[in-house]
Write a protein that binds this DNA or RNA. Sequence first.
DNA 1: ACCGGGCGTTTTGCATACTGTATGCTCGCC
DNA 2: GGCGAGCATACAGTATGCAAAACGCCCGGT
Lengths: 230, 230
Amino acid sequence: MGRVVVEGGPPLSRSASAAASEVIREAIIDGRLGPGARLKEEELARELGMSRTPVREALLLLQSEGLVESIPRRGATVRSYAVDDLDDMYQLRAVLEGYAARRAATRISADVVALLEESCARFDRLRASDDPRDLVKENLFFHNVILDAAGSGRLVPLVRKVIELPLVYRSFYWYSPEQKLISEHYHKQLTRALGAGDAKRAEIIMTEHVLEARDFLLAQLAADEGVSGS
Amino acid sequence: MGRVVVEGGPPLSRSASAAASEVIREAIIDGRLGPGARLKEEELARELGMSRTPVREALLLLQSEGLVESIPRRGATVRSYAVDDLDDMYQLRAVLEGYAARRAATRISADVVALLEESCARFDRLRASDDPRDLVKENLFFHNVILDAAGSGRLVPLVRKVIELPLVYRSFYWYSPEQKLISEHYHKQLTRALGAGDAKRAEIIMTEHVLEARDFLLAQLAADEGVSGS
DNA sequence: ACCGGGCGTTTTGCATACTGTATGCTCGCC
DNA sequence: GGCGAGCATACAGTATGCAAAACGCCCGGT
């Protein structure tokens, strides 16, 4: 079952392997490929209209990002995470993003703050939407802007590793209207603190923001006991 | 010029790509392949006695680890780090290892503390040695024990990424006798704080320890202006 | 003499072909 | 009838071949 599992829209990058990693990553993050799903090289290659080689390279990349797990002679699967792992990752994320916020506060420029404000506005508009997908993207954008503003090249790939994964489980997380509201609030507060150059406060807000996200997610998981949304 | 640049000793893994990544990583870390060195796929394949495919995969892996830099159509080189990058990485390392120490304080067991004490003792003995290599290893061991004691599976690979790199520049860093003494002191203090379960203090000590290491390294770099050891 | 364009070489990127190993099934033996 | 060995199959791992892009070089022009 499930014939066309992955399928990109736009013409994509000119590099086949990069295109493959983008498409597969997208598919994993927005749930088309659920945790535990097998990723057969040949099948993916066929669906993406390319040979196995770039697919292999893409899978290798995704593995290094922690999205994919690969057992030596048995192929790759979408990595599934235990609750304890998620807890761990969110704590790490809190530490790292807190640090990012602290750095960003003293480095951010006015127009980047404007970007954050715009993101907040869009976030507000998207809250009404039923489909959480756009909201997830907007949220990711917000956090990425701060990450970039931190001005640490090494930080970005590190955080990506810890950020993207939990997104797999986001679907039902974002269904909570209160959570949407609270997240928007923290985004606004964060924007203000960064605009004011208040490093300590930005760090605190970000840390709390992430830890609350963890709490919500874990609570949902405990309630729904292992159901993987949609 | 350098014919046999890379060359492993033992029979290595039975997986060619894994073997390749190990050999190349070793070569980079211990300096046989200096920063900026070009890594031509065919050349490496020839020297390692395999085809280009596993070499490509190895390079991809090393790229994800930050040891190698690859420009799309122009091949891979050993990544060279500017002073600013090193600064960045050490700050990140301070944050991450500080967090690790904090977690470890409440999770560490008595026998693991004993391990740390033994490491301190060995460290003390090794201080006399001219060759810093053993000292580097002992230091790495100490930090790894704490990392493991932190009990966060996600933390270890993350820190590795930030720890391994600066090791390239380690050689002359450890030549300073005062630095040896100070490092040993911090290791002892850290061991005590962890043994006492004092999380806050362990974090502070570790953070300062790493940041001081950064300061020493950067000072050395500024003095020697771009000389790469030996 | 210096600069710009065209050609050859080098080297990556992708595709295809082959090999080895793990898995599941069936058949034969106990 | 249950169990283990052998076989078939499927798939990852590796090798090789091909095409296209980037770089250096040489040559002609100004």
